[in-house]
């Protein structure tokens, strides 16, 4: 039984790795942005700032990377496989249904972890970021664990989006969620009105936990953010469930 899960995950990994559109966009975008904003402009600590941008942005671009890896893998992956009939072939087979979702989640999280590792390497080698090992590890662990709610969000998108419109739908959700939660530029630099909006976004709570790992000033408590993310996960999973059960009533000749 565990062999099925392993085979499913291996296939999913190879499939995504060879799909340039996925591997390039999930890996290159966060690294590129981090190079621009973290390395090119922010290696030194500015007066009045608690830490260098290179260090602070490791947390937010790490979150950006994990959100991207999971939203594309689930949102686009599920929409395409559902909309073009492949999921039906899988469902007619004896594959345990959970294997499909568990494998996707594991692989999306793995891609997220790979990008986070690359970001950390950039930050450590070129960004002049020095932290105790325990702090690197706790930040890494938080970023990887943050994949959970966004797997659920991706699944919710993938259960409703059409196979052709899914990539655009994911971008329309991913980009605003990232910007408005301060993943691109620190949230304190956003206009006051937008800052008020942020607590309604799952990305905001994710980023606040990651920032807290750096001992940077963050809003609220970690327990509060975890609770908010758990709530978002339940809502997204519920939406996804509605989407997948709706499928039964589609018309066939």
């Amino acid at each position: 039984m565990s062999r099925v899960y392993w085979m499913e995950a291996k296939s999913e990994f190879l499939k995504l790795l060879r799909m340039r559109v996925y591997s390039m966009s999930t890996i290159m975008f966060p690294l590129m942005f981090y190079c621009f904003f973290g390395l090119a402009m922010g290696r030194d600590r500015q007066p009045g700032m608690p830490m260098s941008a290179a260090r602070y942005l490791l947390a937010t671009y790490g979150a950006f990377a994990v959100v991207g890896a999971t939203l594309y893998a689930f949102g686009v992956g599920v929409a395409v496989e559902r909309g073009l009939g492949w999921m039906q072939v899988k469902r007619a087979s004896p594959m345990p249904r959970a294997a499909y979702f568990v494998a996707k989640a594991a692989v999306a999280t793995t891609f997220g972890a790979i990008v986070v590792t690359l970001l950390f390497t950039l930050g450590g080698v070129f960004g002049n970021v020095h932290m105790p090992a325990a702090q690197w590890l706790s930040l890494g662990a938080v970023l990887v664990a943050g994949a959970v709610p966004f797997c659920a969000l991706g699944l919710a998108i993938g259960s409703f989006a059409g196979p052709n419109s899914a990539p655009a739908t994911v971008n329309m959700i991913y980009m605003p969620l990232s910007f408005l939660a301060g993943l691109w530029i620190p949230i304190d630099f956003l206009p006051h009105g937008l800052q008020q909006l942020a607590p309604f976004l799952p990305t905001y709570h994710f980023a606040q936990i990651a920032i807290a790992m750096l001992h940077a000033p963050s809003a609220g408590t970690i327990a509060g953010h975890v609770g908010a993310l758990a709530g978002f996960t339940l809502i997204f999973a519920g939406v996804a469930w509605i989407g997948t059960t709706r499928e039964d009533e589609k018309m066939y000749g």
């Binding site: 995504l16 492949w86 039906q88």
Partner: peptide, 10 residues
């Protein structure tokens, strides 16, 4: 089954 698209990168 009739399927419009199968994962192509496997």
């Amino acid at each position: 089954l009739q399927v419009a698209r199968v994962p192509e990168t496997l």
